[in-house]
Design a protein around this nucleic acid. Sequence first.
DNA 1: ACCTGAACACCGTTCAAGT
DNA 2: ACCTGAACACCGTTCAAGT
Lengths: 219, 219
Amino acid sequence: MASPERRGGGRPPRISRTEIIETARRIVDEEGVGKLTMRRLATEVGSTPMALYHHVRDKEDLLLLLVNDYAARSLHRPDLPSDPRERVVVLAAAIRETLAGVPWIVELLTADDLMAEEALWYNERIVDALMECGLTIEQAVHGYRAVWYYTAGEMLVRAASARRRARDDRPTHRDRIFADLDPVALPRLASLSGRWATLTAQDTYLDGLRALVDGLTRD
Amino acid sequence: MASPERRGGGRPPRISRTEIIETARRIVDEEGVGKLTMRRLATEVGSTPMALYHHVRDKEDLLLLLVNDYAARSLHRPDLPSDPRERVVVLAAAIRETLAGVPWIVELLTADDLMAEEALWYNERIVDALMECGLTIEQAVHGYRAVWYYTAGEMLVRAASARRRARDDRPTHRDRIFADLDPVALPRLASLSGRWATLTAQDTYLDGLRALVDGLTRD
DNA sequence: ACCTGAACACCGTTCAAGT
DNA sequence: ACCTGAACACCGTTCAAGT
């Protein structure tokens, strides 16, 4: 919580942790997490790489600070419907909506389970809504996990596809394979004749989520 | 499919694409994908970094070859039950079981949707089983996607946690946060008093999967 | 056709020293 | 207490040259 000790009369700091995080966020927002390097960040705050290590433990620590900073400033809390199943859907969709705008964050998230302190508000309410559907608290925690797996998976797969599309012009490996399928071995896929890409590009997150929540809350 | 052209009487090759892939696989199996570098790989095949670029386009190409190689040699095809819902469960669980042993591959997978040619056998059968439950082909493709999101998410989140546990001794950010929760703001989570970690460590993949498949195939 | 050596343009981090 | 400079031990990839 607190910055490194600052009592006693040592040299006054020239850069602050806050300044480091703000600059890091700007770099990441503008150019992606791949462009964030300690050297680059040092240059942009007008200092040297090693000065950063006085304010953050290492690069991973910096990234974690960045995630928490982001969570604190942009998780919005949606109005919640009274029907508990629909409440789970609204909560999960709100998490996804918040994170969809910042694909870089999703890759970091799984590392610690979306456990930014500020995000626990969501965990609490999803667990609570599942219990209102009749689950025990253990089942509700497991249900929350299933919802998180589905949501994280959707975001990660979608982010990876987008990244690949942005970088490459050449048709993806997938497109090449789907172009000529053996209709004897793979009749269903062959019958789609190229519509796989179109179908999987559609956003069906909510449909799948509703199916999952229905299944979880069925007696 | 074919190696670079080899007609005409040029210099005989000293290293082959096959040899490169085999060596790369060994490095990755023994020490993880993070240790696979072009320089290291070159040394281990007894050559120079640049010689590799004659056999693979770049590092990403190498990784894709590695994924396909792995898929070809270790995807096993399970016996399929006649009940179509249970068939989807068995198919998805087989994918997960195959990939669970090689966490490094999961991180690469989302990049191209588990679209190794050899894996289409699974897609075909999952789509087919969902249609047998009464879905249209479009719904079945979307259903397959939902199952893949859930499965990929579970593997990615689990792999990330395992990686973190392996590297760090210090308690995770999550553990520290869960140690002291405000029971007024977060009563459900607080009532678990430290059991969150235990509960989420349990393997409930199949339960969530069954819930999802049930929800998807409900009329 | 296949391979090599040197070089380019980077990384994160440690260590010893300065103010 | 805070910051700097130089160095360590790496990366992936390009380019020009050798056989």
